[in-house]
Design a protein around this nucleic acid. Structure first.
Lengths: 150, 150
DNA sequence: ATGGATGCAAAGCCTTTGCAAGCTT
DNA sequence: AAGCTTGCAAAGGCTTTGCATCCAT
C-alpha cells in the first residue's frame, strides 16, 4: 500500500496508515464521522480534516467511491470487484447489498446504445426490510401516512 | 390540483400555484435554485424558503422525488409513470434519461428474494457522453489522469 | 376567526479550505 | 532541504427553521 501510494506521489504517515486500515476494516457505507470516531478510538489526536482528506484520497486512487443515499451524508464504499447495489430500509436505515453483475451488463448496453461510455453504476432501492415490515404489520396501527409539512 | 391538495389538508395560494406550475413546466432534475430563478422571473416577490417548502411539498404528496447525483445539490424529478434511470456525463454534466422498466422488474424480484419490500428505485450511470468522448479523443492530449489532492 | 402559507433572516450541518508547524523521503 | 501532511479553526454552500404577518377557507 505504501508503495502503491508512493507511485502516485503520496507519502505514508502514521495517521494515514491508521485511517486507511480503519476504513478497510470497517464495513461498507462508511461516513466521515463514523470513520473519524473509529480512528479516534485508536489515536485521539487525529484531526477531522485529516480523516476527511484521506477518505477523499482513498477515492482518488480508486479504492473507494462516494455513495449518496439522500440523507445528506456522504458515505464511502470500498470498491470491490463485484458490482453491487443497495437496498435501503427507510425505517431502520439498514442497508442490504446485492449483486448486480447482470444488471450492470444490461445497463452498459443501454448506455452504449446512446453513445454513452459508462464509468460507474449506482443501483439503489428504497423500501422496507423484512424485519420492519413485520413490525409495521403488527405493532403499528393502520392509519394513513404522514403528509404534513413542518 | 387545488382539490387534490385540499384533500390532503393544504391550501392553494398564488405563490404555490406559480411554483407548482413552474416546476411541472420545467424539465427533470430541477434544483431549488433553478426553480427559484424561474419563479422569480414571473414574480420576484416570492421567497426562497417558499420555493423550497413547496418543492418539498410536491415530494410529500408524491408528485416528485429527490435525486442526488453526488454534486451536493439536491434535484427533484417529477414522478412519471415510466420508471427511468439517468446517464450523467461527468464532463459536461448533461443528463440522459433511459427507460428502466425491465430492470425495475428484476430489481423488485431481487429485493423480494431478500424479504425487502421495494418502494422506489434509483438507477444511475456515470460516464462520458458521446459528444464529450469525441472532444476528449480529438482535442485533449493523452496524459494520465489527475491524482492530486488539493 | 383559524390554521396553514409566506418572507426574511438566522441557524444548522456537513463539507472544504487556509495556514503554520511537523514529518517523510 | 523540499514538499507532502497534519490539526485547528474558520469559511463555504446548501438545506432548514423561527417568527411575525398574511391570506385562503
Amino acid at each position: 500500500m505504501k508503495e502503491f501510494l508512493k507511485t502516485k506521489g503520496f507519502k505514508m504517515t502514521p495517521q494515514r496508515e491508521l485511517i486507511f486500515r480503519s476504513f478497510f476494516e470497517m464495513g461498507e457505507h462508511v461516513s466521515v464521522d463514523e470513520l473519524y470516531d473509529r480512528v479516534r478510538r485508536e489515536d485521539n489526536s487525529v484531526g477531522y480534516a485529516t480523516v476527511w482528506r484521506n477518505l477523499k484520497l482513498i477515492c482518488r486512487v480508486g479504492l473507494a467511491e462516494e455513495v449518496n443515499i439522500g440523507d445528506g451524508i456522504t458515505r464511502y464504499d470500498r470498491v470491490t470487484k463485484v458490482p453491487h447495489g443497495h437496498l435501503f430500509c427507510t425505517e431502520c436505515k439498514s442497508v442490504i447489498e446485492f449483486n448486480v453483475e447482470q444488471l450492470v451488463g444490461v445497463l452498459a448496453q443501454k448506455a452504449g446504445e446512446r453513445g454513452f461510455t459508462p464509468d460507474s453504476f449506482k443501483i439503489e432501492v428504497q423500501g422496507v426490510c423484512e424485519g420492519c415490515r413485520a413490525l409495521k404489520a403488527s405493532g403499528s396501527n393502520g392509519h394513513s401516512e404522514e403528509t404534513g409539512l413542518p
